[in-house]
Design a protein around this nucleic acid. Structure first.
Lengths: 233, 233
DNA sequence: TCTATAAGTCGTCAACTGACGACATATGTT
DNA sequence: AACATATGTCGTCAGTTGACGACTTATAGA
């Protein structure tokens, strides 16, 4: 490697100009499970920052261990990536969300706001979002089919709950239901994308944004359903 | 490279198992400008598919030329990437959008729908979106500040136009105005992201989705503004 | 204290990668 | 036909990678 494209390369490899990494002098010899957990934790941040193509040597530096040791825990880099993905991306979804969204002792708007406050907390972090994007972009079968299915289901639940509360009759087309839900979800997700991927500054606080988007969704709900019905070809 | 992580590697490098590429036997010796244009066109697709870390050799294959020839046109890979970004990502924004959005001889809803139909056509394609995402994720200064500024401006125009038509008084906080616009823009952008990045199937046609989201935005506009005012701390 | 074993490192291999000097050839002009 | 020049290729260099065999050493149980 000559010099011209150092910046690009460094970004992709995870190199830091001045070499940070912990003082590898610290304590050593962790038990297997503990070391593995530490590697996974570090790897999550590392790959989220530097992309899935970042190098194992840099990761090892970041962990304060030799590159060889990584291969005592994971047969290949891909296996490591798989485990990071499974734990950090898939692992954060909470089955309780479905139940809570359908708890009709509370008004739907309240339920949806509470859901999104929790949802944003675990999934729409810098770490999660960047990792998810890198995974989505890669051709790997790690692809977000599973997540897509979960979110689609969440959308359907949200739309049905609002319709129930507002006594609105929904169309039979479930795809349309999902798209209606995505109206809200897309807006909120995009807030997170803007914040963590586009590094936007001058951004409103999370709670306010959620409240605003949910309100808009609730108020426009009837006419959205009506509009769909009107546009049937 | 041994064998285990072939799939991952191949995805990142742009290799195709059975080696596609055009029959490089075809006609040769294009004039400078023509060849450069061909390279840029191919490079756009190539990097959109395989990421910014894909290799120059594979790109050369894809172009049907030798790797060396690439360096007759671009001093470094980074320069090539810069030019792709400038042409394909930045180059598609149309200054006329601002004027058209402010043409009050038409109803605001109509203007916004027309705008988004055009906007989706040029920016929210697979090629554009993936490239934009890769660029956003990379630490490179190629970062989307410029785009962010343009879109933010578009948002402000849209919000002001709707407010004018509906005779609604807007808050002074411009950040709030932008966030209101992002309500709509995020929802529509996210539709494209879902479609091209998450490879979602079962998706409603573009026009319908735009109409639905714009309608929801228009109907909920007053209460969104009101809600913002209510939540001032 | 001795030792088995788990925890960890060194050094290296082969393929990959950006970059480029040296060389080859098509094409139009005279 | 001869030539100048732009178009294009070959081969190679040096630094980078994922992967792994061989080796070292801390630590707990006998």
């Amino acid at each position: 490697m000559k010099a011209k494209s150092e910046a690009l390369r460094d970004a992709a490899t995870g190199r830091k100009s001045a070499e940070s990494a912990r003082p590898k002098a610290g304590r050593k010899r962790l038990p297997h499970a503990e070391r593995k957990a530490q590697i996974l934790k570090t790897a999550t941040e590392f790959f989220a920052d530097n992309g899935l193509t970042a190098q194992t040597r840099r990761l090892a530096d970041e962990c304060g261990i030799s590159q060889r040791l990584l291969y005592r825990f994971f047969p290949t880099k891909e296996d490591l990536l798989d485990e990071v993905y499974r734990q950090e991306i898939l692992g954060v979804f909470k089955p309780t969300w479905f139940a809570e969204l359908q708890d009709r002792s509370r008004p739907a708007e309240k339920r949806i706001i509470l859901f999104y406050e929790d949802y944003l907390k675990v999934t729409l972090t810098r770490k999660w979002l960047r990792l998810f994007m890198y995974a989505s972009l890669s051709e790997a079968r790690m692809a977000p089919d599973y997540i897509s299915a979960i979110v689609t289901h969440l959308m359907e639940v949200i739309v049905r709950e609002v319709a129930e509360e507002k006594a609105v009759t929904l169309p039979d087309d479930r795809t349309a239901l999902h798209e209606m839900g995505w109206t809200l979800h897309g807006a909120i997700s995009h807030y997170a994308i803007r914040r963590h991927l586009y590094k936007a500054s001058n951004i409103l606080p999370e709670q306010k944004v959620i409240a605003m988007h949910v309100r808009t969704f609730m108020v426009g709900f009837e006419s959205m359903v009506q509009d769909y019905a009107d546009h049937l070809d």
